[in-house]
Amino acid sequence: MALGATIHTFDVQLADVDRGVYENPTLRVARHPSETDAFMVTRLLAYCLEYEEGIDFSEGIAATDEPAVLVRDLTGRVTAWIEVGAPDAERLHRGARLADRVAVYTHRDPAKVAAAWAGKKIHRAEEIPLVSFDPGFVDDVAAVLERRNTMTLSITERHAYLELNGSSFSTAIHEQRAG
């Protein structure tokens, strides 16, 4: 019998001072059995750091033709393609041709992620940010995950301050370009 996804709920207080975004979404995040907690935390952070009207999680691992997070306009057109982890160059190329904006959030070594794209065709690669966090940050956050979570995330001057279930964390938000 195949295992189903585990649903995690996050009551989020989001204050992104850098972008002027202040929201309090309640998010239901499905974690597929083959997905690590670190990947799920990175998906959650990508969602919060990219938060805007029309943002949504895709079907996850089951949706091989969509990114982890996407933004659609009122007509249903994908306006932002947000990958998580270490997507291959072909996925980035496809996303950059379909959406106005593409971003990659990773919990892995960003130098190794970017090296895998070297010399490969990626549409508008110079416009695609590769976003990462301080080493150990994502794993430390993943260690305090529960099925029901209370989270406060404040972003100011490209630094994130996170409180999750009573534990506090902080990290710089590092950004480089894919191309």
Rank of each mutant, 00 (worst) to 15 (best):
S167Y: 13
F10D: 01
I122K: 04
R108C: 02
D140T: 05
A143G: 09
V131N: 05
R177Y: 02
A86E: 11
S154D: 09
P33G: 10
L45P: 02
E163W: 02
N149F: 11
A80R: 15
T9I: 14
G85E: 03
D37F: 13
F133D: 01
R124C: 03
R72Y: 04
V29H: 08
H123V: 06
E66P: 00
P87T: 02
G60W: 08
D140N: 13
S34I: 10
A160S: 10
A5M: 14
M151K: 06
P110T: 05
A142C: 05
A86D: 12
W81M: 01
T171V: 08
S154A: 14
I128K: 05
I173S: 05
T171R: 03
K112Y: 01
D88K: 11
R19H: 12
E23N: 08
F133S: 02
A114Q: 13
H8M: 13
A178Q: 00
T152V: 15
E66H: 12
A142M: 07
L145N: 03
E146I: 00
R77S: 13
R177A: 11
T171M: 02
I173E: 06
E146R: 15
T79G: 08
T75F: 10
H107S: 11
L3G: 10
R108G: 01
D37Q: 10
E90A: 15
V102H: 04
L92F: 03
S170Q: 14
A99Y: 05
D88E: 11
V144W: 07
L44S: 03
A99I: 05
L3A: 12
A86M: 11
L74Y: 08
A114G: 00
A172F: 09
T152I: 11
D65L: 13
Q176K: 10
A178F: 03
T6A: 12
L92Q: 04
R97P: 00
A46M: 03
C48Y: 04
H93P: 00
A125R: 06
V69R: 06
H32A: 15
F39Q: 13
V141H: 06
T152Y: 08
D16F: 09
P135V: 05
G20H: 10
R158E: 13
E90P: 00
E146S: 13
M151Y: 08
A68R: 12
G166V: 05
D37S: 13
Y105G: 02
P33D: 09
T42M: 07
I122N: 04
R101M: 01
Q13F: 09
R158L: 10
T79M: 07
S154E: 15
K120M: 12
P25Q: 07
